[in-house]
Design a protein around this nucleic acid. Structure first.
Lengths: 158, 158
DNA sequence: CTATCAACATACTAAGTAGATAGGTAAAAG
DNA sequence: CTTTTACCTATCTACTTAGTATGTTGATAG
């Protein structure tokens, strides 16, 4: 599987923070309740997002987490990469992987590379803002302000 | 990881069969030697390709395997799906997966679905013929005869 | 008919990953 | 000083990955 629960939960946590913050901090206990994810499991995903500079937390009463940037400037690619470590579809394309000795002979590596770029560009083109529920519109999804080139596809939007 | 060694080896085995057959059968011992993959490991990948109707084998001396179809009619999508079981990027999209109870609420499923379709179409558009080494051309890759819609991308071709 | 070759089948293993849970410590607010 | 919440470390079970080992079955060559 390319994206495990870790990556999927990470996206949902980010959406939840975006939707349920008035600019202040949101406690992970509340996120856990709303999302139906164990708090303990959330607590081991969240440090990955903090280290990636996507969220920040404060201790104690009234504490919690909040996004470091506006939702329209946080891409799904960033979140999933932070949570999963990589979104490379094959092991030999993970950055830091030991170089394949058949690389010069390999007739398939370009194909995998193409799949990787396709995925990366797709997820770079989707932001948290795109995934938020917005009351000011009943037309469903609104496109984010920074719109990346997805090859004119936008398959994900129905 | 979306595609493990099983899927990657499967593609390489198929290419090897396409390149090293004169229409007759090719012994997996030879494929193993050429590809540098353990024969024993090959022997547990190959039944998956047979079951999928991609290759067929005959026992005994002079036996081996051969493709059931011409290389230009065998897509990478078929091979990888046969070897891996699925190329769904997330668990909830694997066919036969237990239906998610948050499906109606889920703000992310469309996005995963889009990634799935992107990948599937990409790999459907690449055939064994596209990946073969062809002596009659020094321009590198030649496009397959059946050309699927890949959204005009063809990222994989350099 | 029998030796050989190669597909086909089953069992096993060592290492790693997935998906959590348990039990704490540290800091901030009231 | 108690409550709240982030933060840290360890443990656990089940499953998957990437193989190896040891055969059996079936076809062919001699």
């Amino acid at each position: 599987m390319l994206i495990s629960t870790k990556g999927r939960y990470a996206v949902r946590i980010m959406i939840d923070l975006a939707e349920n913050s008035d600019g202040g901090y949101v406690a992970m206990k509340n996120v856990a309740d709303r999302q139906g994810i164990s708090l303990k499991y959330i607590e081991r995903i969240v440090p990955l997002l903090t280290k990636a500079g996507l969220i920040e937390g404060v201790h104690g009463k009234g504490g919690g987490y909040r996004l470091c940037r506006e939702p329209q400037y946080i891409s799904v690619a960033e979140i999933v990469t932070a949570a999963e470590g990589s979104i490379a579809p094959v092991a030999c394309l993970v950055s830091g992987a030991k170089p394949c000795e058949r690389k010069n002979v390999c007739r398939t590596v370009k194909m995998w590379q193409g799949a990787y770029e396709l995925l990366e560009n797709y997820f770079k083109g989707i932001t948290i803002y795109d995934l938020m529920l917005k009351e000011d519109s009943d037309k469903g999804y609104i496109k984010s302000e920074i719109k990346k080139d997805t090859g004119g596809l936008n398959v994900w939007q129905l």
